[in-house]
Amino acid sequence: MAASGQDALLRVEHLSMRFGGLTAIGDLSFTAARNDITAIIGPNGAGKTTVFNCLTGFYKPTEGSVILTHEDGKQFLLERMDDFRISQQAKVARTFQNIRLFAGMTVLENLMVAQHNTLMRASGFTVTGIFNSPTYARANREAIEFSEHWLEKAGLVDRADDAAGELPYGDQRRLEIARAMCTKPVLLCLDEPAAGLNPRESEDLNGLLLNIRNEQKIAILLIEHDMSVVMGISDHIVVLDYGVKISDGSPAEIRSDPAVIRAYLGVEDEEEAEVVVERAVAAVAKKPAGKKVAAKKPPARKKGGRK
């Protein structure tokens, strides 16, 4: 359900992002509620990733504001913060569409890097840590335990000491999510986590996502092309097309919104659109969850973690 103003963890207001003449996002507003999974969907190039980049400080939006409110009432204006402070202070974590792991470091090291700020404090900003002070030794142990905890959830304990770049693609996706979770976020942004996964890997991923959703009290923003995943697990969906929001609501509402189907299937004619909508709705309703009703083919698998 669309969050009421009070309960919203994240409020995006009149967000615009232009690259030269190209408007990647135009006047976008939506909210994301605490403990909800909010999906952002839309055709290729709709501006979904750009929204994430604006939220996490990698792009400075041309206009608009992004407000994040913690449970204790503390507010952060994300569009004004440096990217690393958004993770450090506002507690927003993310994954990347083309996985960005530290490929030459081990799986465990990847998760330890994610706990950098905690460990940095414990090591007295290196000054006491270099003498292996008891505080640091303890914090280090705890960090390893916390990493192990997430490795278990992601099913990667056995690969803890392997280089992240050696992992199969599906494992890399889950590792990236585990790494993001190791920053202890209040908002987790996942950019096409299921893209390029085979059905088995996809299932493992769903398991991890559901686990996070059920056990962690955090909000999730999810970009996903796989409609079965989107319809199955999200509480609230925002649909983008050419950077503009064309629909916003619960999965049921989105399913029956002709504008959405039109955008996805590129149908011009109203009447024809209605037919298509009905068929699509029927199709979605019939298919059991877990099977793919992808509105478009997932993008070609990119070489994981390497540039």
């Binding site: 990698f58 030459g104 890097v113 790494r179």
Partner: peptide, 11 residues
């Protein structure tokens, strides 16, 4: 390894 990933982790 990856500067952008570092920044996304609060470094």
């Amino acid at each position: 390894e990856d500067e952008i990933a570092c920044r996304s982790l609060g470094i």
